[in-house]
């Protein structure tokens, strides 16, 4: 179980890595799509919680024009993002940059989840230390039943149905 979880975590982290690929630069005027690809990663302080590429306010239109200008000047995606961070602060990024104090936001949840997991597994262990090992086998079926006797779930279920009649 734990292993499967690990694999999933890994796979999803991989998937997350692949999503943020940069756009190539060329000499033609920047298209809306190139502008949006960068705008998507930015948050304008005027309309909080709305990414720049879909924010309808005037301020955000200006920002998108700024991105277009900078793209036309041949600036790279990173340079443009950095420009906005310098001008308007860390809050324009979708996430706090992973440095200094901000590390708490990335470290605390996994730590708490880990502590929770440890507590859970310790408690489980405590509870599962066998007092009386109850036989796992359920009540056997009557012979006439067509179900496979191995299927203990089903047999239990039929027990239940009989009880409820």
């Amino acid at each position: 179980m734990k292993k499967t979880l690990l694999i999933f975590t890994f796979v999803f982290m991989l998937a997350a890595l692949f999503t943020g690929t940069a756009l190539a630069q060329d000499s033609t005027p920047p298209t809306d799509n190139e502008v949006n690809a960068i705008a998507k990663q930015l948050y304008c302080p005027v309309c909080e919680s709305t990414p720049l590429d879909v924010c309808p306010t005037e301020a955000c239109k200006d920002w998108r024009e700024q991105i277009r200008t900078m793209l036309a000047e041949g600036k790279t995606e990173d340079e443009i993002l950095q420009h906005f961070v310098d001008q308007y602060g860390d809050r324009v990024m979708a996430e706090p940059p992973a440095k200094g104090f901000n590390w708490i936001i990335y470290l605390l949840p996994p730590i708490i989840i880990l502590i929770g997991a440890i507590i859970l597994f310790r408690s489980l262990k405590e509870w599962t230390t066998p007092k009386v090992v109850a036989a796992g086998s359920s009540v056997e079926n009557e012979a006439g039943e067509a179900s496979t006797p191995k299927d203990e779930y089903l047999s239990k279920f039929e027990e239940e149905l009989k009880k409820r009649k």
């Binding site: 999933f8 999803f12 998937a15 948050y43 990414p51 860390d90 324009v92 104090f101 901000n102």
Partner: peptide, 19 residues
């Protein structure tokens, strides 16, 4: 603590909660 405003947006939540 730092006087710095930050945004915690979808990428944070998506990456953290997806697994």
């Amino acid at each position: 603590f730092t006087g710095q405003k930050v945004t915690v947006g979808p990428p944070f939540y998506e990456r953290a909660t997806a697994p």
